[in-house]
Computed example of a mutant assay.
Amino acid sequence: MDNEIDAEALTALGHPGRLAVFRLLARRAPHGVRPSEIAEALDLKPNTLSVYVTTLTRAGILTTWREGRSVYYGIDLKRVGALVDFLVNDCCRGRPELCEPLAARSLQRLAAHRDVGARNVLFVCSGNSARSQFAEAILNSDGNGRFRAYSAGTKPNRRLNPEAVSVLTAHGHDTVGLKPKAVANFQLPGAPVMDYVITVCDQAANEDCPPLPGLPLTAHWGIARPSATLGNDRAAAFAAAYVAIAERLERFMALPVETLDALSLQNELDAIGAARVSGKGA
């Protein structure tokens, strides 16, 4: 990248509104997001969003594509990676620890503890009343001690969804003591340090939450909200959400996380989130 392009990219990110769009898309990367969803999540008028994404696209930071009749925006990961390389090589003199000691220490922690003990995994959805609870229960039950699973909500409900409790019980999980918790609980001193944070609903992924200690690897495994289904199909929607999460976790548990490096793990987590799930099964 030349200096003019670098300057254009940094200028494009130097506006609070454009930066908010970039950060939302970064949280959803490598997946794309519809303009209507971005506007709703950030409370932007459509014409304001259009101005923001035009500037970011012109700077090469965003890319756009169509799937059927829908338009999606996403981060140009190669371009952003080149911008980060510029900042490290040019501004930090090739020594990232000079610019960001916390990041450097956290990456060293990840490498040093790759083959020690169980990995901590936090599953996040908006209410922490169904999908993230499914993920926590399944991984703790089937992870063979390799993982310690937790769950939390960005806006936790007061109690678990009764239909979610029925599904958990039907699959043999003990629901005694389960209750929705806030993500903020895992930012407190003494909270377990996470190795992975996985959002399982789009609403939670769209929200701008402070990063958790330790710079865990993150991924988005969007699962449709079962409580949005009405009528006779509602129970089936909860059952399908459980199975869809179980299918993704089956792939996750098959990964040799003890030996994969951070970049390979990130690629695998993203691939799991992008894979189609049947939502069918026992």
Rank of each mutant, 00 (worst) to 15 (best):
C99N: 05
P30A: 01
T63I: 11
Q203K: 15
R234F: 06
A282G: 09
D76W: 01
G177W: 04
L62M: 10
S132H: 05
Y242V: 03
L42Y: 03
R146L: 15
L102P: 02
A20M: 03
V71S: 12
N89V: 11
P156G: 08
C92I: 10
L249I: 11
G74I: 01
L19Y: 10
D233G: 03
S36W: 05
E258R: 13
R69V: 12
L42C: 04
A149F: 07
C92V: 09
S141P: 05
S126V: 15
E163A: 11
T229S: 04
I272S: 00
H113G: 09
A241M: 08
H15P: 02
V257N: 03
P16R: 14
A274Y: 02
R18A: 01
T64G: 14
K280V: 10
V277K: 02
A239S: 13
V80W: 03
L77G: 14
C209M: 13
C201M: 02
L87E: 10
R159H: 14
L42W: 03
E247L: 13
N206H: 09
F238I: 03
A239Q: 02
A135I: 06
V197S: 01
S227T: 11
A246R: 15
A275T: 11
R248C: 09
G68V: 07
H31Q: 15
V71W: 04
